[in-house]
């Protein structure tokens, strides 16, 4: 009781705000994955290191890590340029673009393109059905092409196009 009576309201605010400060800094450090490189290498500290592994981004958004543009590149590396083509039931070849699906560039690239590249079959079927419902047509084949550009010191040169993945839709539906 005597301790409580000595508690000044200002001190209470300072204590509360200190918790807020520690929370914000703590959670940003926690999500900043690459700062884990500073963690001491003592064996005794490896258990809490593993225990404190942050969930993948963006589960704690707006607290996220910032791993942008982090891979080193060298002369001769290829810049990937993907294009997605569909064969319709009347044998027409069409280039599928974000606006055809009513999505923005990011949803298109990280949704459809990544699904094709990483063989996420359920997502591919969803995108196929989305396209079919918008254009009242039927897709029978879907292909992901890469039109690579080779990086040189002061220019880029076009390389041979590559067929990255191909999906006959009927087979995809059966599976």
């Amino acid at each position: 009781m005597s301790k409580l009576s000595h508690t000044h309201p200002y001190k209470f605010t300072v204590n509360l705000l200190s918790i807020v400060i520690l929370f914000f800094i703590g959670i940003q450090f926690y999500t900043a994955k690459h700062l884990r490189g500073f963690w001491p290498k003592f064996r005794r500290l490896q258990y809490p290191y593993k225990l404190l592994k942050p969930p993948p981004d963006p589960n704690l958004w707006p607290f996220v890590s910032y791993p942008m543009y982090n891979y080193a590149k060298h002369e001769g590396d290829t810049i990937k340029q993907y294009s997605i083509y569909a064969t319709l039931d009347d044998s027409t070849e069409v280039l599928i673009q974000p606006e055809d699906l009513g999505v923005n560039y990011w949803v298109f690239m990280y949704g459809l393109k990544e699904s094709l590249r990483l063989e996420k079959k359920e997502m591919i079927i969803n995108f196929v059905q989305l396209y079919e419902s918008r254009y009242h047509t039927k897709i029978i084949n879907l292909r992901l092409y890469n039109y690579p550009l080779v990086l040189q010191k002061d220019k880029i040169i076009e390389a041979e196009p590559q067929l990255v993945k191909q999906y006959p839709i009927a087979e995809l539906m059966k599976k």
Partner: peptide, 18 residues
């Protein structure tokens, strides 16, 4: 502090990966 952590994280990601 948020700025400092974010920039340092971004730099470390580049230096660790590349």
């Amino acid at each position: 502090w948020m700025f400092a952590i974010i920039y340092l994280d971004s730099a470390m990601s580049k230096l660790l990966k590349g």
